[in-house]
């Protein structure tokens, strides 16, 4: 399974970013290869509008099975995300990536859709 975390840093101990559209980093964990990879999302900083749309598209290009985030995605980003089979889990905004992963595995996170 491939999981995308909305994060502020690129290691297991990094803090999650509660925001979706303007998250600092997209951190992908591939369970099959057990690798953690980070990609920047800093270009959304300068966007006045539409950051969520661009981020949603970028996330889908990674073809994840699951997204783990904090507050959840906005309405327009959801329109895009819902066109794929990805599952979205929320409420992990105050955790580290590791804690978020463990909470997801323990079935403790709520789904946004």
């Amino acid at each position: 399974m491939k999981i995308v975390f909305t994060a502020k840093g690129d290691s297991w101990d990094s803090q999650m970013d509660a925001r979706f559209g303007r998250m600092e980093l997209l951190v992908t964990y591939d369970e099959a290869s057990q690798t953690l990879q980070a990609a920047t999302n800093s270009e959304t900083e300068s966007m006045e509008h539409g950051a969520g749309l661009q981020t949603a598209q970028k996330v889908l290009e990674l073809e994840p099975d699951v997204i783990i985030t904090g507050n959840g995605a906005g309405q327009k980003a959801l329109e895009i995300l819902k066109r794929s089979n990805v599952k979205m889990f929320v409420g992990a905004g105050d955790m580290t990536i590791k804690e978020a992963y463990e909470a997801f595995k323990a079935d403790k996170l709520k789904t946004q859709f």
């Binding site: 966007m47 509008h49 661009q54 598209q57 327009k76 895009i80």
Partner: peptide
């Protein structure tokens, strides 16, 4: 320039608000 269009693999999505 305003992120109002998203090109998906099988469709074009327009967000008129933007």
């Amino acid at each position: 320039n305003f992120n109002a269009i998203v090109a998906m693999p099988e469709e074009i999505l327009v967000f008129p608000e933007l």
